[in-house]
């Protein structure tokens, strides 16, 4: 009970990091979407050269551990471009998520049958119109489960930003642990907060998925 009281006492301080954690996750996911979706379209519809560039980007960003990426962006990119540690973390996570999201969207686009594109073109739609009005509305719905998975991963991976001193949830838990000498209790509390956030997010996306489901 004493441990619970301690966690409750430290909780407001730890929860002060939730805002930063959520910001980091939202920025990384948004950036991943804005970059990842065009990458996916380029990989599906682009010329051979374009496809090569996109797949090389994906391979690179998916092969380097996130912590290494964050360090690269913090110690090299951020120093050169004079970015804050938060920006360095957001950039590293956003570009990495773009690589994963492009794979999610590519798979979704490819699982919309080719007949849909053919039918749209047969009506006189341009390729762009067909993608915009027929393929993407279906692909984005198909992508929701995979995207939800990526969102959960990104949300939890924001904890890596602690390594470059971003005062998010994990960093604050680390401070509290150092101050109280109670790592077990503090990190258990910290885990519970991550769990609740991820659980809420997953539930939300499941609702979105069923609201927009396309039956085939």
């Amino acid at each position: 009970m004493e441990k619970v009281a301690l966690v409750m006492r430290e909780l407001p301080f730890i929860l002060g990091g939730v805002g930063t954690t959520v910001q980091l996750a939202v920025i990384a996911l948004a950036m991943g979407f804005v970059i990842g979706l065009p990458l996916a379209l380029m990989e599906v519809y682009g010329s051979r050269g374009v496809r090569w560039v996109v797949s090389t980007y994906g391979t690179l960003f998916r092969s380097v551990p996130l912590l290494v990426l964050i360090f690269i962006f913090y110690f090299i990119v951020a120093k050169v471009a004079e970015l804050s540690n938060f920006s360095a973390a957001a950039l590293a996570m956003g570009l990495r998520s773009a690589a994963y999201q492009s794979e999610i969207f590519r798979g979704a686009i490819q699982s919309v049958g080719t007949g849909q594109m053919t039918a749209a073109r047969s009506l006189g739609m341009t390729r762009f119109q067909a993608i915009r009005h027929v393929v993407l509305p279906q692909a984005l719905r198909l992508a929701i489960p995979g995207w939800g998975n990526e969102a959960a991963v990104v949300l939890k991976d924001t904890s890596f930003a602690y390594a470059i001193g971003v005062a998010e949830l994990m960093r604050r838990a680390e401070y509290a642990s150092a101050r109280t000498y109670e790592p077990f209790a503090i990190f258990t509390g910290c885990a519970a907060v991550y769990f609740l956030m991820t659980f809420g997010l997953t539930r939300l996306l499941t609702r979105v998925e069923s609201a927009y489901r396309v039956r085939t």
Partner: peptide
Amino acid sequence: TGMVFQEFNLFNH
């Protein structure tokens, strides 16, 4: 030209 396909190809969404 209007085209009708064997597999219908209606827009599912």
